[in-house]
Design a protein around this nucleic acid. Sequence first.
DNA 1: TGGACGAACTGTACAGCGTCCAGTAAGTTG
DNA 2: CAACTTACTGGACGCTGTACAGTTCGTCCA
Lengths: 183, 183
Amino acid sequence: MPRSPGQRAGLTHEAVLAAAREVFAERGLAGLSMRAVAAELGVAPNALYSHVADKTALVDALLDDQLAALAPPPPDAEPRDGLREVMLATYDLLGRHPDLVPLYLARQGARGPQARALGAAMTVLLGRLGLAEAEAGRVVRALIVSTLGYAALATADDANLRPPQLRADLEVTLDWLLRGATA
Amino acid sequence: MPRSPGQRAGLTHEAVLAAAREVFAERGLAGLSMRAVAAELGVAPNALYSHVADKTALVDALLDDQLAALAPPPPDAEPRDGLREVMLATYDLLGRHPDLVPLYLARQGARGPQARALGAAMTVLLGRLGLAEAEAGRVVRALIVSTLGYAALATADDANLRPPQLRADLEVTLDWLLRGATA
DNA sequence: TGGACGAACTGTACAGCGTCCAGTAAGTTG
DNA sequence: CAACTTACTGGACGCTGTACAGTTCGTCCA
């Protein structure tokens, strides 16, 4: 509903992020412009800059936000199963939002709180496999790199590389990595 | 040298690609606009469209072009060494052109002739390790995914993730993958 | 040899982008 | 009640990729 002019919109960082989420869901990454987000809020484009440093900061926030859909593996799970499950869930999530894959890789998305929480949960599981923290960090990175990489591959529309096929390949790859890391 | 008006520029696909290579080398991906390429050739921006479908096609060509700097592993190399060398050389190349990493991942750059040649040479080496062609393709993908993924990670300026450190991690990861694949 | 034809190129223009600047109006604090 | 801060608007700048229409050239065939 359009405010009467002279009224404040009462924006917040969260409101802007929510609008960005909406625009992204409806029109994809290509449709996610500052102007579109502003229009969604019924506000002039520049108004966003009171709540967000610039577009890349908004996109970063959106990237982490999307990870909220992923449940961290419980600490008492069988470690290998838990790790495989998160990674496959991540792969599936990215499959639903292929636009984001390059962004996660480019800025290595793992900066926000959601990403941190997932990383910490994975480190716990690797600890139960006997890995020290530094070593666990390296393995987490290896797992993530392959998962994001396969998700990126799945966005190319090559008949030989359908997402289910690649998902199976990813599963095998994760297995090799975990086996190598705990040998 | 500026042609006298009314003279043809005599552009070709290769000339456009060469200009794009030049602009990219000097001003990076952000500076690679159709206008910049056209200016480099002393030509109106739209002139490019007689030789290139659109910008993404030009960028695709540039991506494959850059791979020409990579020497395919000789077929008689020790397979594991040869594979590790190409992948590390790829990692090093991408380290010099971080801008391109997301693009390689997004369009899975491996469509052009250069990419195909590298893939074929890798498949030969994997064949000598006893892998059938389909299986070799999967392993090639796994290796590439990790290599590009680590290169992407290296573009994030995190003090804990310096390129040399990640290169070492990649080396270990490649080892795990090759070991897993040939077990 | 001339005339048609297609390709190459220019000029102009459009719609869109991120974001800066200056101004105004509202809310908050002394 | 006055001073100040914050949130927002209007307008603009410089840039993008590329579509459209028109002109000029090289080539090929009658």
